[in-house]
Nucleic acid binder design. Structure first.
Lengths: 234, 234
DNA sequence: AAACTTGTGTGTCCGGCGGACACGGGGTGT
DNA sequence: ACACCCCGTGTCCGCCGGACACACAAGTTT
């Protein structure tokens, strides 16, 4: 558990030895990401990743301490370098919108990220960098430190929820044929849900609540920030 | 995959046979919930659950079709009966707040629920009932069906995110000693985050962003609903 | 009463998982 | 030439979900 922190935070110099290595942490991570991108996180086993590199699974353990370690490196590699939002013209809202869009795009490219980033786990510098970006975008808003943290957490959570399919019981109702059929059969029991789902299904296809939720969250932040700037007005 | 839908939605009559059963679906679910409550979702294996009932694991398969099935029954049992919010005085905001509090309390009692309710899975009537409750609370707001669905999804997601510890990389920064140490070491690299986390740590202990996020979401919904009611005013 | 059927728990086996551990072989520094 | 050390291999373990054949106790039928 502690080793991977070193693996993530310390530069990986190989002790000066100029050896040519068949296997490196980066190659392993790349192979694992390939597996996850194409077959999902469940398919990421040491066996599978090793097979893709034409190597036995135990060979991987020469470079990563555990599977959790491997996943941590995968994440750190997949999230990419955090953006510099200071170059984005506009206020906090413009910047946070940009941040959210970039984040969403990254997570869209690697749909396994929501599944991989649950539970307690080590965090790498690039991932921290993304958080830094968002917190920094809220610098001049008058929010307290705790509020800035909470705001970024709220936004991150929204990305996670909309990017991982079927996280809550709510979403698939409008699309999943099977669920729609069940709902139709029990429409007497769930009239409000049935009506909303039917109406939603007839309307233009949804983006999984992404835009809706983002706008609501930013509106809510806006309300708070405005109040802070003008504390004596409603 | 299809059998458990029957298990969840159809009343479980045992064919009329008046047999005395050592094992029932309900007893199995109760034992599994005990395991999950006390040792976490990862400890819920067929083996473990069976051992708690003094039975072999294969005996469980006479009553549930698969582990996914068992988990589905666990969830349906743990979420409990959905509330009737129509008896709550006040407007949509009062009702949704009540709903969120009840939901949060339920999830607090069963911390494994976030982990168990990820991924594609069958949904039971009680879980649907909770969604129905929330959607119904938004009936008279002038929101479209899709918007009501998205709003409930947004709220559900917030509960999920705040109840499952360390979902995003943001949260543990203020509490986890190890992470705080790492952050302190790299404070030059993440100045905004460091400042916010330090300030947040010094302030009163947080509720994991629960109140903050809930207020922001409800404020954002309020903005939208007000606009809908008065479309020609800012 | 005897035979049959049905529902329920058991024992055994399988493939796949993460991981421990001893081994071997090849390139490097002395 | 030598020893060392790094790194990939082979084997083994316990746990997981699950298939399948079997044992056994009722209740039903003849």
């Amino acid at each position: 558990m502690a080793e991977n922190v070193d693996l993530l935070w310390e530069p990986r110099d190989r002790g000066g030895r100029p050896q040519r290595l068949a296997l490196t942490v980066d190659r392993i991570a790349a192979a694992a990401i390939e597996v996850a991108d194409s077959e999902g996180m469940a398919a990421v086993s040491m066996q599978n990743v090793a097979a893709r590199l034409d190597v036995t699974k135990m060979a991987l353990y020469r470079h990563v301490a555990s599977k959790a370690d491997l996943v941590a490196v995968m994440i750190e590699s997949a999230v990419g370098d955090p953006p510099n939002l200071m170059t984005v013209p506009g206020d906090w809202r413009t910047r946070l919108t940009r941040w959210a869009d970039l984040m969403r795009e990254t997570w869209r490219r690697h749909p396994w990220l929501p599944a991989a980033t649950t539970g307690e786990r080590p965090t790498g510098p690039r991932e921290v960098g993304w958080t830094e970006s968002a917190v920094a975008a809220l610098s001049d808003t008058g929010l307290t430190g705790g509020e800035r943290m909470d705001a970024v957490f709220l936004l991150s959570g929204h990305i996670r929820n909309t990017q991982s399919s079927a996280t809550a019981g709510t979403q698939p109702w409008t699309t999943d044929k099977n669920l729609r059929e069940v709902l139709h059969r029990h429409r007497d029991r769930f009239p409000a849900l049935f009506e909303a789902a039917t109406e939603a299904h007839a309307a233009t296809p949804t983006d999984n609540g992404w835009t809706f939720g983002l706008t609501r969250i930013l509106d809510g932040l806006s309300t708070l920030i405005t109040t802070r700037h003008h504390p004596n007005q409603p």
